[in-house]
Design a protein around this nucleic acid. Structure first.
Lengths: 241, 241
DNA sequence: GCCGATTTGTCCGTATGTATC
DNA sequence: CGATACATACGGACAAATCGG
């Protein structure tokens, strides 16, 4: 629900870039011009533009202007840096998602689990294994750990649909921060059993810790991806801090 | 060289977080307090804090405060999202880097290379293959494409040391934006020949386009990493734009 | 090389809205 | 309800980089 002015300006500029209204390598209107175009203060313009910078759409050059560096060459098949649930990204890419729950249990974090997930020893957790299909192909196995005190009354039915919808719409938990680490690992027996890995014996693994709006980590998930369908995008900018 | 005030405040807050002066889950001083502590305006404080947010150190909560969510559990073995050269990151982690040039050529981009790299057809390029060692272990094979009109007079000697040092210190080219895509690919004969992959037949591949301060893409690189030493960190925040 | 106009970068102060307690 | 905290927005000032005359 964007109602903030800077978000509207961001959206408008972004669409103008994506549709080619501003061409690749072209300079955007100067900040002063944008102020007149959108009828707002300079700070608001600068905030919209700086968001475009972090998303890799434009590059600012002191004394020169703001250059469009968006190339529509490659489709963004996965998230561009934000947080997105499996179902959301599937729908955004016009694919049909399906989820099968392989395992559903309530556990208490011991030392080993604590070290792996970051939950304190003794935490009451839901632990599930889920298999995600896209257009009928088994692509991802997720190992989810949810903190029971936050994610209350989780059921098989919810887990088969979308846990994130349950979190946001029913429990009104908003996901804020997610720390992710990507690695490549040898496949396990479980991976081999459920994913069609072809002649690859490795897969892409994304481990993530997710925090709610109270700053409490309530989820640890290890996502194991079939390598040929895995792809992760990222934009980095040089900083001097 | 940070001399901007917000960068100093960022650095100070970050070090206080890393050393535990602010504890995990603790609230930082409120913006008003920070204004008095650092003797600056609210905007400057907010900019420092928001940089900490994007780096995953803290989380802001409207009406409540700013919570420290930094856990020193796992060392950042690779870059945290910024741009860093192989040599820089090696030195930062107290490891000894070495680079061997396998191939050095000047080429002109044909259709196939253009599609792969994003350079226009007909671009004059340097193409090199380089093998990177860390503490004596062959870990990465890089396939670099540099735009000759920007990266002038590249030599074997430079390529064996650090191209980025040459770019920054000699040519005074500053790297600004880097768009990266991570995938997992089957190994090639070259990979197998030079990297010790053990029983894995896949590797982590990072493809990146790099832009200079004029907004010109001057580098395309495909980095092929030995999977057991590959690790990529990332912090994502939910946005509603 | 200098100067002035333009453009982005940094910083300040203030006002108002919204969420929390 | 009031106090506190962060979020958004405005306006102004000066610095730094770029470009053209």
């Amino acid at each position: 629900m964007p109602k903030a002015k800077y978000a509207e300006i961001y959206k408008d500029l972004k669409s103008k870039i994506e549709t080619g209204e501003y061409e690749f390598q072209e300079l955007l209107p100067s900040e002063n011009n944008l102020i007149h175009i959108y009828g707002c203060s300079r700070n608001t313009i600068r905030r919209a533009v700086s968001t475009l910078v972090t998303d890799g759409y434009v590059q600012t050059m002191q004394g020169k202007g703001v250059r469009n560096i968006f190339q529509p060459t490659l489709r963004t098949s996965f998230t561009i840096g934000g947080i997105e649930s499996f179902k959301e990204s599937a729908i955004r890419n016009h694919q049909t998602p399906k989820t099968k729950v392989l395992h559903f249990a309530e556990i208490t974090a011991d030392k080993k689990i604590s070290v792996r997930t970051g939950f304190p020893v003794g935490s009451k957790l839901y632990y599930l294994q889920r298999l995600h299909y896209l257009d009928g192909k088994a692509l991802i196995i997720n190992h989810n750990y949810f903190l029971k005190s936050v994610v209350t009354d989780l059921t098989m039915e919810i887990a088969e649909d979308s846990i994130y919808e349950y979190l946001e719409n029913v429990l009104h938990i908003s996901i804020v921060t997610s720390k992710r680490i990507m690695t490549v690992e040898k496949m396990t027996e479980i991976d081999e059993k459920y994913l069609e890995l072809g002649d690859c014996n490795c897969l892409a693994v994304v481990s993530s810790q997710t925090y709610n709006s109270d700053g409490i980590m309530f989820e640890y998930t290890q996502s194991r991806h079939r390598p040929d369908y895995f792809r992760f995008q990222d934009n980095a900018t040089r900083r001097f801090l």
